[in-house]
Computed example of a mutant assay.
Amino acid sequence: MSDDKPLKLRARDPADMDVVAALLQDALVPLGDMKYLAKEKRFVLVANRFRWHGDPAEDPRPAAPEPQPEGEDAAFADEAGTAPPFERVNSGLCFDKVARVRYRGLAPGSKDEILSLLTITAQPDAITLIFAGEAAVRLEVEAIRCHLEDIGHPWPTRWRPQHDWEPAVAEKASENERS
């Protein structure tokens, strides 16, 4: 487990939101932990954030654990001294000055649904949280006022999110370098 300090950031413009989006890529967000507080003009959520460190295309660690021999329990494999190489942490995300919230592809009443956050896009007057399965939440804002803060301590995990496009991105980058 890492001894890094908890993350605590503010975002005030679209460029700042690009940083927040990168940090929250592949976060798991329970729909029941997402709420619009209209009287306060605030939208809040709690995300189970994967702690990305560096470029995933250059990360030599496997995206998933090696298959265990039949009958071997994962708990016994951990006792062999190989600590899980990745971490997740709960993070609170708060947007202030939110005038209106629109939902697409999800039902806010489905409290048991867990969404996978792909990215966040930002314009001076709107922020869109884009989730897997073509779901999205659009926040119409008076100004970008975002706060991201880790809640609690990170915990170890063996699972790193995998993207089908990662090799294509690396290949495209190397093609651009050759040009």
Rank of each mutant, 00 (worst) to 15 (best):
V137C: 10
P69R: 14
P84G: 13
P56T: 07
A132W: 08
L93M: 05
A126C: 06
D125K: 13
D73H: 11
A99Q: 07
G109P: 09
H153T: 13
V44F: 03
I144D: 00
R49M: 07
Y36N: 06
L106Y: 09
S91R: 00
L93Y: 02
D33A: 13
E140S: 04
Y103H: 08
A80W: 15
P85R: 12
D96N: 13
D150K: 09
H53G: 05
A107Y: 09
A99E: 05
N48E: 09
L106F: 10
R61G: 12
E140P: 01
E134D: 14
Q68L: 07
A83W: 12
G92C: 13
P124N: 07
L106N: 02
D96R: 08
G105T: 13
G105M: 09
K35W: 03
E58L: 05
L115S: 01
E79F: 09
G71V: 11
V44K: 06
E58M: 05
E134M: 12
L118M: 15
V101I: 07
A99M: 08
E87R: 05
E113T: 15
E40G: 14
L93P: 00
A63S: 09
D33S: 08
T119V: 04
L93D: 00
V137K: 00
G81I: 15
E79V: 10
Q123N: 06
A38I: 12
V141F: 04
R102E: 09
K97E: 15
G81Q: 14
H153I: 15
G54P: 01
P56Y: 02
R42D: 02
L45R: 01
W155C: 13
R61P: 05
D73Q: 10
D78K: 11
R100Q: 15
I130Y: 04
E140I: 14
V98Q: 01
W155D: 15
P108R: 11
E58H: 11
R49E: 02
R104C: 13
E134C: 13
L106H: 06
S116C: 10
K97N: 14
L129V: 03
P124W: 09
R61E: 05
Q68R: 04
V46C: 14
E149A: 08
K97P: 02
G152S: 07
R49N: 07
V89T: 07
P67C: 14
I144M: 06
R42P: 00
K39Q: 14
S116K: 07
A38Y: 05
L93Q: 01
N48P: 01
P65L: 04
K39R: 06
L139G: 01
L129N: 00
Y103P: 02
R145A: 09
E87Y: 04
E58A: 10
L93K: 00
A77Y: 04
C94V: 12
A47K: 00
N48W: 01
A77I: 04
A63I: 15
T119Y: 10
L37C: 02
R51H: 06
